[in-house]
């Protein structure tokens, strides 16, 4: 069986700036894989390239042996690769549960007639969507806030809602861009538990960008270190921790 995500020789150029250069890695099924590196290293740009928001200027990416580097972002999402954003992007004026309903849009009965005259098929699909939403809200501890406006949630809750919104689309690969940024230590521990659970119970692979070293070292099986757009090391947490190049470029600074 092929790897879940395979990226090779990925490059992204903005005018004169080579933001990503020759990045390659492989994410296996039900694996947690982290990308770390100093600010401006090009981590988010890698995410944007594999999730279809940027078209990479070189290299390729394959999801379950299917090329995705020239697909548009919504098609990639339908193939099972969904992401969160470095700055939370919720539908702020919609309620929490509506955020989760929108995420299920592609799986609902959206046929015009069945909705207009409320065919049984349509009612069933709406009911199931609500049930699924309440399952995931319960999972991330937001069930009591279901009917609040998403924009009114506390920051940590917004981050969890964003993850729930991804998970409800039943992805095979979840991309998290700095999920622990702005969280307090207690919330970071909860995030750690949540990621472990998602992988164990829902079989999802997680590719994450993170600056919180204790979180990264604790949950990742593989880590890719980037600096100035280039990959400088790839390996297990133990290998990364003792890699002299990494210590010099990244850990050494702190």
């Amino acid at each position: 069986m092929s790897a879940l995500l395979e990226v090779a020789d990925l490059g992204m150029r903005f005018g004169g700036l080579q933001a990503v250069d020759g990045v390659g890695f492989t994410v296996e099924r039900a694996q947690v894989f982290a990308i770390i590196g100093p600010n401006g290293a090009g981590k988010t740009t890698v995410f944007n390239c594999i999730s279809g928001f940027y078209r990479p200027t070189s290299g390729w990416a394959m999801l379950e042996a299917q090329p995705i580097h020239n697909l548009s972002s919504h098609r990639i999402a339908r193939l099972g690769l969904v992401r969160t954003f470095q700055n939370v992007r919720l539908f702020k004026n919609m309620t929490v549960v509506e955020n989760l309903l929108v995420a299920q849009h592609t799986r609902l009965v959206t046929n015009l007639w069945s909705g207009l005259i409320k065919l049984p098929r349509y009612r069933r699909s709406e009911r199931q969507a609500l049930e699924k939403a309440s399952f995931w809200l319960d999972k991330v501890g937001l069930l009591p806030y279901a009917n609040r406006e998403a924009g009114n949630l506390a920051y940590g809750q917004q981050r969890r809602l964003e993850i729930a919104r991804c998970m409800i689309t039943q992805p095979s690969l979840l991309l998290l861009d700095e999920p622990a940024a702005g969280l307090n230590p207690q919330e970071t521990r909860e995030l750690n538990t949540l990621i472990t659970e998602l992988r164990a119970q829902h079989g999802v692979s997680v590719l994450l960008i993170e600056h919180d070293m204790s979180l990264v070292m604790g949950i990742s099986e593989q880590i890719l270190v980037m600096e100035n757009g280039r990959p400088i090391a790839l390996g297990t947490p133990a290998q990364i921790r003792s890699d002299p190049k990494v210590i010099k470029a990244y850990l050494g600074e702190e």
């Binding site: 928001f53 999402a77 919609m94 929108v102 849009h105």
Partner: peptide, 15 residues
């Protein structure tokens, strides 16, 4: 409504 609020988020969810 979602599209009016955030088109990028919509695309990231497969819409």
């Amino acid at each position: 409504e979602a599209l009016r609020e955030d088109e990028i988020a919509c695309r990231s969810l497969g819409l």
